[in-house]
Each structure stands twice: as structure tokens, then as C-alpha cells.
């Protein structure tokens, strides 16, 4: 299995971020990890990357419930980012929500590859690796 170069985690829960980072290290998931605490921070950060002419991370783990800008709003704004490799970015929703309305709504976004229910496990990340790399 190949390694992913850059991954982005968008979540407001520090414990989740700690855990995900730790599992990523364990299974040697990627080289770089970008972390944003809400949708707005993420959009700002990603726009900054684009402005510098750099490539966007190829995998984004996105939480749904966040302050200031939630996961849904992030998706709406993200698809507007002008970057030639945006289409190479794969988004995974990672949420605690078992609300079928959320699962259904996710299907409406082509850019979202899958819906992963928290807690995230090493196996989940291995599957992502198999899909993407």
C-alpha cells in the first residue's frame, strides 16, 4: 500500500484529533496532517494553500457538527475553491450522527466518498488508504 502525501482533518473535538493522528501514525497513513477546528478555518486555510500555488491535501476527513461553519457549509464553499487538483481531493465524512437524514444528505455530494461513523478505527483508515492510494 502506498502512503498518502497530505491529509486534512476538520473537527472541533481535540480528543478526536488526537486519536486520529495517533492511528494515522500507527498505520503510517500519510506524510503531512493539516488540522482545522471548524469549516471556516478550513476554507481559509485551503484558500491560502491555493493562493501559494500548492496542491490541496488528497484526503479530507470532515466532521458535520462544528461551530461557526459546519460540515455542510464547508462542502458548499469547498466546491467553489478554484484549484486544478480540487477534483483529486476525496472527502470522507466522519461523524457521530446516526441520523438517517444526515446519511441521506451526504449522498447528494459527489465529492464525498464515504460516511465513517465515529469512533474511527485503524481498519477504517486502512480502507481509505486502499481506496485512495
Amino acid at each position: 500500500m502506498k502512503k498518502i502525501k497530505s491529509t486534512c482533518i476538520i473537527d472541533d473535538d481535540p480528543i478526536f484529533i488526537y486519536g486520529t493522528k495517533r492511528i494515522m501514525k500507527e498505520i503510517d497513513f500519510c506524510d503531512d496532517i493539516l488540522v482545522f477546528n471548524n469549516g471556516q478555518e478550513a476554507i481559509d486555510g485551503l484558500l491560502n494553500i491555493t493562493a501559494q500555488g500548492k496542491k490541496l491535501p488528497s484526503v479530507v476527513f470532515l466532521d458535520l457538527n462544528m461551530p461557526i461553519m459546519d460540515g455542510w457549509e464547508f462542502l458548499e464553499n469547498f466546491i467553489k475553491i478554484p484549484n486544478n487538483n480540487r477534483e483529486m481531493v476525496t472527502v470522507y465524512i466522519i461523524s457521530s450522527s446516526v441520523d438517517p437524514r444526515d446519511v441521506e444528505r451526504v449522498k447528494g455530494y459527489d465529492i464525498v466518498h464515504n460516511y465513517i461513523l465515529k469512533p474511527i478505527t485503524p481498519q477504517d483508515l486502512k480502507d481509505v488508504l486502499a481506496d485512495v492510494a
Binding site: D13, I15, F16, S96, V98, K118, P119
Partner: peptide, 13 residues
Amino acid sequence: SHNLRSHSSNLSM
């Protein structure tokens, strides 16, 4: 369910 799950998933992790 969402809020309890988010904590319980953290705890189990």
C-alpha cells in the same frame, strides 16, 4: 444520540 455517541466514541478510543 449524536452527543452521547461523540463522547462515548472518544472514551472507547
